[in-house]
Design a binder for these strands. Structure first.
Lengths: 343, 343
DNA sequence: CTGTTAGCGCGTTCAT
DNA sequence: ATGAACGCGCTAACAG
């Protein structure tokens, strides 16, 4: 085939073999009621002629695309990349392709992405929400069209959609209880937008652990930012101004925890002697920072697989009623030197 | 609109307003030759009726998708995520959507991804190659169909395709020369598949710097692995067995450098006193490891923008002849404590 | 400025 | 097991 040449179609194949396009179409999609030999011949000829199925025509006719949309806040985290790898594997195995986009943590872009997905007629949509998403009206058009929408990790508290996540409340409770057991009494908590379950649940778990251990919750010990590296440095400066100094920090992600630790160290704070530290996510950074950071590990790859399988299951049984149900995955607390009080 | 209900089409709108579908189509795509008022009415009615353009039909008719395919080795690096953000911005601004997939560093998946892109009829393809890709035959079908293919960062030495990258030879030369200037005479170089320009060019730059400084190149000082974190630990063990010990290490990426440093430190090697260190990419890790890692910084976001603009330019002038030309972007050497000999 | 007509390539009836 | 005919929804070509 040369530049500008016409694509070969099933009609070209049909003409060459002096049969009908319908038979070619059936043979190429492995329809049962077609002669073994003619099928073989058709497939062979198609390959020879460099035939390439036109997905537009096929999709138009079938009214489905075999494409699943994926909207995530950002692509550049170890966690998210694992999730995507897991999603891709499962969907590819089921003959679906993935359309990925990032909201860059803004609702505006998330809405725009969702509309793109709609126009591109995805068969299903998987979403992890941006920081500032206040409502999910932009996903209603999917529901109305019976296109499954599944939330993972950053979900929305609403029964209409299936959701996959971990028990952030319990994980935060455990991590806080651990810090308390190590002797901490004034624990700073750094977190992000309380619109997101992952952060509000962690804050709630932190509060409950304090309460269960007869420690008073202090608003002044909660720092809310965007959990970026820069925010971690600023948080350190805020902490340095606290009088008296707190005796522990629990950050809702590792990146922020690490940069916070760095700035504190630069200012002469000894870790973990002066201050215990804990993060969340088990980012590779946690094993590089000194002291190594205590954190919560949960497997993104598995979350991706589970979410994708859920999607496949819904697509396979579209006619049946699909009650939205939530899947809660496992996590583990990994204790490292940053949260161990030296004797 | 309710579940299962038929989508409204331009014919529905036309019927309701008692005009032709052609006019509706023109109005919705903002065609110039259509009455201001009817246009306004059509747009309003379309919105009211919940009209959604059917991209399959449109694409089928136009023989173009406004989708650009993107194949990268992995999504989970800071660098690649920046590249993607840059690409997305430029392409979205030009009304293109992005179809992302990762090859996971294998040629097999890269080929499979390319075929998916072909079937999904992308208008253009942007690629950064996997480790073990030995040829680029899988991109020829694109060229034959006059679909632009652009390589970035991990490019292929072939004139047919435009390529965007940095001068890896020069960067490696500078970093090696810097280590030599600090007094190093036996420098280990850790790198990956020599099939990829980014690694073969860096090795070549390293060799040239040795030569220009009258240092003998030793095959035994070159470690080839996959530059993963695990590979870094193993490389450290290899280095520990070298007698005498080398006096510097230049790793072709930061991740591998950092884990290598960690294992060396655990084994009692003092950095930078016993061994100088340098990496490549300016990953956030470089500022966390102690001592902070000397590295090469080059901006992924900019590379993404440049590559995407190149793509847009080619798509805009498809009829004209487009000579493949290469764009070489800037980089900078960032010297940190890991490569500074203490006096 | 607007309408008529045709066809993009495929999958799916309903025949035989 | 195969074929004829239609239509998915849209846009481009041609008229007027």
């Amino acid at each position: 085939m040369t530049v500008g040449a016409k694509e070969t179609t099933i009609y070209d194949i049909a003409a060459k073999l002096d049969i009908s396009a319908a038979t070619v179409s059936r043979a190429l999609k492995d329809h049962p009621r077609v002669n073994k030999n003619t099928k073989k011949l058709i497939v062979k000829t198609a390959a020879e002629m460099g035939y390439l199925s036109n997905s537009f025509a096929s999709n138009l006719r079938k009214k489905s695309s075999n494409i699943i949309g994926l909207i995530v806040p950002r692509l550049n985290s170890n966690f998210m990349s694992d999730v995507i790898a897991g999603i891709e594997k499962v969907l590819n195995n089921n003959n679906y392709n993935v359309f990925i986009s990032q909201s860059l943590e803004t609702m505006t872009k998330e809405i725009s992405n969702a509309n793109d997905m709609l126009v591109n007629r995805v068969d299903g949509l998987m979403v992890s929400l941006a920081y500032d998403t206040t409502n999910i009206n932009h996903f209603e058009p999917f529901v109305k069209r019976n296109i499954p929408v599944i939330f993972f990790d950053r979900v929305f508290e609403q029964d209409d959609y299936p959701q996959i996540y971990i028990d952030n409340f319990k994980a935060a409770y455990e991590i806080t209880a651990h810090l308390i057991k190590q002797g901490s009494k004034r624990i700073v908590h750094i977190t992000a937008s309380q619109l997101r379950n992952v952060y509000s649940d962690r804050l709630a778990g932190y509060k409950k652990a304090l309460e269960d251990n007869n420690l008073k919750f202090e608003e002044a010990l909660v720092i809310i930012n965007n959990l970026s590296s820069e925010a971690g440095h600023e948080a350190a400066n805020q902490i340095l101004k606290m009088a008296p100094l707190p005796d522990a920090v629990f950050s809702a992600n590792d990146i922020c925890a690490v940069s916070c630790m760095q700035t504190l160290k630069k200012n002469g704070i000894r870790l973990p002697d002066d201050l215990l530290f804990a993060g969340f996510n088990n980012d590779p950074l946690t094993c590089v920072i000194e002291p190594n950071l205590t954190t919560i590990n949960y497997k993104g790859y598995e979350m991706g697989e589970v979410a994708a399988k859920q999607m496949i299951s819904r697509l396979m049984n579209k006619d049946e009623f699909q009650p939205a149900h939530n899947l809660i995955l496992k996590y583990e607390l990994i204790v490292r030197e940053s949260s161990l009080r030296n004797k």
